[in-house]
Write a protein that binds this DNA or RNA. Sequence first.
RNA 1: GGGAACGUAGGCUAAUUGGCAGGCUAUCGGUCUUUCAAACCGAUGGGUGCGGGAUCGUACCCCGCCGUUCCUACCA
Length: 466
Amino acid sequence: MTTSSPVRTRFAPSPTGFLHIGGARTALFSWAYARRHGGTFVLRIEDTDVARSTPAAVQAILDGMQWLGLAHDEGPFYQMQRMERYKVVIQQMLEAGTAYHCYMSKDELDQLRAEQEARKEKPRYNGLWRPEPGKVLPVIPPSVEPVVRFRNPVEGSVVWEDQVKGRVEFANAELDDFIIARADGTPTYNFCVVVDDCDMAITHVIRGDDHVNNTPRQINLLTALGAPVPSYAHLSMILGDDGQKLSKRHGAVSVMQYDDDGYLPAAVLNYLARLGWSHGDDELFSMEQFVAWFDLDHITASAAQFNTEKLNWLNAQYIKVADNAQLATDVHRRLAQRGVSTVAGPDLERVIGLYKDRVSNLNELADAVHPFYVMAHASEDLRAQHLTEVARAALVDLAQVLASATWQATDLGNAVKETAKAQGLKMPQVAIPLRVVLLGQPQSPAIDAVLEVFGRDEVLRRLQAL
RNA sequence: GGGAACGUAGGCUAAUUGGCAGGCUAUCGGUCUUUCAAACCGAUGGGUGCGGGAUCGUACCCCGCCGUUCCUACCA
């Protein structure tokens, strides 16, 4: 591809499940590369596997992309809607002699493979129906619908400069004449990818490591079609937290699960950006900064293990600086799911302000805020430990002082301090029982701030229920 | 079996490309505080998968092993 062509990248998931973390990173890198170069990001749904593709999975992928904020410029294109185009190209290839009909049945093919494996050979199509000058092809069997095979070069090798892995070379002898159209006429993956990448003028193919082995086939196909070969960047895989590979059975979860788990999309994106790519020692950066910095040169070739601990830290950093009103919208939703209403209680944004730099996800934030809206009940253990006779007496005194105190943090703090002093107690000896009564737990942000946000009525009400 | 890749502290990674192995996270400790966090400061942890080779000198080049992954479908 000439360097002067405008950059066009694509994300091409197959809709057989949700958008998981590996797909999300591939999408992020493709998106960022297009943005970085003022190019175009195309979304393409590879749904030619009719048996496994579902509309629900398409929707799940679109939802995931939307949650992450990775907007496509073109598409989504659906391969199933491009069947006519594929058939035209297959016909052209048959006429040009770069593809041919193969009448070997599935059973015969299976048998061939079994024999090859028994001889410890690489299982591959033997070229029985491949036309050669002077070769007499077998008689066409009456009951077999043919597949169409690509006439792959038999000599030489395919070489490309992978943007992540460097020079990769495959001998054509390792490749066989793969099927580009099934017996029922539907085209297969490698063929559709090539036609689409060509038609959509994709300049940079950024995708998972698992496609490295498809690349020489696709390059040969592109060459046979006389199409330009795009630049390839193959991203290594993401392993689970335990170092095991991710699979549907093990660790692979939808990106939407991160929403449920209280992660901000910005934090997830920042984390993914840093998983396999680096910009010196920079860890915390905005998407604007990422786009300005992103390049293919600094992508790591090795597989990366997902680390939830670091994601938690990043998420905490993002929550800390997030807008209170935005956090309130989210926390409100989470509380509503628990059947908790915030209308009667203190201002949610102010309560969030007390906790946003103390939590690492939005569920923790909702947990922290929860007792401000629902009367908290400390466990018997906590009550026994903190609400001693002495402490109760102090709290009764405090309630009297608070009934007429100026409702302002420093004054409230002084009120607690002086009550303690009058009882011959240290401040924590009053402040901690007070926390247990107000919030049901012995730890909280500064007690004066908690009192101020709660408001006089609610504080006195809860002290009354002591 | 054949082919293609990948191995830097528990995890993510950096190293001006052959010249002092650095950062983040986690863990531990300290400071601050009104409790718990957060924040800040400090510490533990690697000699770069293992073994050879070339070089004055290698994380980086070469060879061999080991380990992990991917492909070897009428899946994508």
